[in-house]
Simulated assay, not measured.
Amino acid sequence: MKPTRKQEIIQIAASLFKEKGYSAVSMRDIAQAMDMKAASLYNHISGKQEILATLIIEVAEQFTAEMNRITSETISPLQKIKKVIEIHIDITVTYSENIATLNNDWMHLEGEDLRRVVKMREAYEENFRSIIKQGISEGDIKPQHPEVILFSILSTLRTLYLWNEKRGKMDVNILKKDMVAVLINGIV
């Protein structure tokens, strides 16, 4: 199915945001990349804020839904962490431009969109933290500080879109297998 003009605008803007950053991209830049007049963009979209919110909220909602699904499953904390890592990889590979915008430009959101994204992010991290703490208390995970574990895993996953692009986009199944192994078992 052919994307709508609005979807095309959002996709072009996502590429520009990823390349230059949200602040450096103007509606005129987006229009130029679309080979149309800037004023014509406003027939399809209200402005950069709408584009930014669309890109970020789309993936934030996916992360939230997947985390809620994983936390409700009756599996071990280690299995939940494995699934969280795999979901991050899937979403990152599928939506790398959205992930770039989420990671680099979320702070440019305004009003309710900003509050909503911050709330989703905090809930996501708290759910992940709870899984880690449960794993520690059950003896499945070494008794290391939960914040260090959370930071180590999330910082790796949040920058995956950059690394994967530089390396020529590895096969998603290899990424899942090897990243899960390294992030859960370490390298020794």
Rank of each mutant, 00 (worst) to 15 (best):
K119P: 07
W106K: 15
A38F: 03
N43V: 07
G111L: 01
V118S: 07
S15I: 12
K83C: 02
A38R: 00
L55A: 05
V59P: 01
Y42S: 01
E61V: 06
E50K: 07
S15F: 09
A38G: 06
G111F: 03
V25D: 01
V117G: 05
S76N: 02
T64D: 15
T101K: 03
A38H: 02
R69T: 12
Q62W: 10
I51A: 01
D35R: 02
A39K: 11
V118R: 10
D113S: 08
M107D: 15
E19D: 12
L55I: 06
S72T: 10
L78Q: 04
N103W: 12
W106V: 14
E61Y: 01
L16M: 09
V93Q: 11
I85F: 02
S46E: 14
T94D: 12
S72M: 10
K119F: 14
H108G: 00
K18D: 10
T101F: 00
E58C: 05
A65G: 06
H88S: 13
E86W: 09
Q49G: 04
E112A: 12
N104P: 10
K83M: 13
D90W: 01
A13T: 00
K80T: 05
A60I: 04
Y22R: 06
D105G: 04
Q62H: 07
S15C: 13
Y22M: 09
F17D: 09
F17A: 05
M27H: 07
I57L: 14
I91K: 05
N43L: 14
S15E: 12
V25C: 02
K82Q: 14
E97D: 15
H108E: 14
S40K: 06
I99V: 14
I57G: 04
A24D: 13
Y95C: 07
S46T: 09
G21Q: 12
T101N: 03
I12D: 05
P77R: 03
I91F: 07
Y22H: 09
N43W: 11
R28Q: 12
M107Y: 15
L41E: 04
S72Y: 10
L102T: 08
A38Q: 07
L114R: 11
L55R: 04
D105F: 06
F63I: 03
